[in-house]
Design a protein around this nucleic acid. Structure first.
Lengths: 121, 121
DNA sequence: CGGCATCCGAATGGATACTG
DNA sequence: CAGTATCCATTCGGATGCCG
C-alpha cells in the first residue's frame, strides 16, 4: 500500500493529468514551504513571510493564490483596520501538508549523507 | 513524531541551510517525478525520459546531475556499444523517494476535492 | 543511445513603488 | 497590514546540431 500506482484514475507522469499541475503547485519553489509553515497552524500574511525566509511578497502572494485555488489553503479576511488576513490549511490541505512535512523529515534524516556526498564531489 | 521541528540541526525555512537547496532539488519541477519514477526500480536514460512525459533531454540530464550530486541517485555507465547508462536510487534516495511517493499518494487522495474547488473558482 | 554545447524566446522571480 | 503594479535581471527550458 501507499504506492502511487494504486490510483488508476490519475497519472502524475502524464502532462495532461490535472494532478501534474497540482503537484507543481505543491512541490514548487515556495509551495512546499508554505504548506509546511501552515502545518503548525494558521498564520497571517506577514507572519508567513517572516517564517519562509527569502520569499518575496510577490511570490508568497502568488503561491497562496495557487494553493487557495486548489482548495488546499483557506483565506480569511477579517476586514478590520489595520487589515488582518489569516491563512490556514483546509481538510485536504492538512492531508497534503502532512505528507510534505514527512518529506522534509525524510530529507533531514538523510541530509548528513547528502552533505558528505556533496563534499566529495 | 515525524515533525520537522524535531531536527534542531537543520531548518529548511532558512535560506542558508543546505537542506533548502536539497529540498529544491527534490521538489523541483522534475525532481519529484524523477525520484518517483526510480522508486519502481532502476531505469535507463531513455526509459526515464519516456516515463516522465514532457521532460526534455536537457532538463532530465540536469535533474539527474543534481540528484546525483546530492547522493540520492547513482549513475552506472556500462560503457558498451551502443551506450547504456542506468540510473538508480541510492539508500538515502530510497528514503526520500518513498516520501515523495507518499506525497503523490496523498495528492491523488485529495484530487477530487481539488478539482471541484477549481471548477467552482 | 546517451549525452553536451549553443542559441534564444518564455517564464520566473526579486526590488521598488504605490494603494486601500 | 496586506496586498497590487511595474520594471528588470536571471533562469528555465525547448530546438538544434554535434560527439563517443
Amino acid at each position: 500500500m501507499g504506492n502511487h500506482r494504486e490510483h488508476p484514475g490519475f497519472d502524475v507522469f502524464s502532462p495532461r493529468c490535472p494532478s501534474r499541475q497540482t503537484l507543481e503547485n505543491v512541490t514548487g519553489r515556495w509551495g512546499s514551504l508554505t504548506l509546511a509553515a501552515l502545518a503548525d497552524g494558521p498564520l497571517r500574511f506577514g507572519a508567513l513571510r517572516r517564517r519562509i525566509e527569502g520569499v518575496s511578497e510577490k511570490m508568497l502572494s502568488q503561491t497562496l493564490k495557487a494553493l487557495e485555488a486548489d482548495g488546499l489553503v483557506s483565506r480569511t479576511d477579517h476586514a478590520t483596520s489595520p487589515p488582518r488576513v489569516d491563512y490556514a490549511l483546509t481538510a485536504p490541505g492538512e492531508q497534503v501538508a502532512a505528507a510534505v512535512v514527512a518529506l522534509i523529515s525524510a530529507l533531514y534524516a538523510v541530509l548528513p549523507d547528502v552533505l558528505s556526498a556533496e563534499s566529495s564531489a
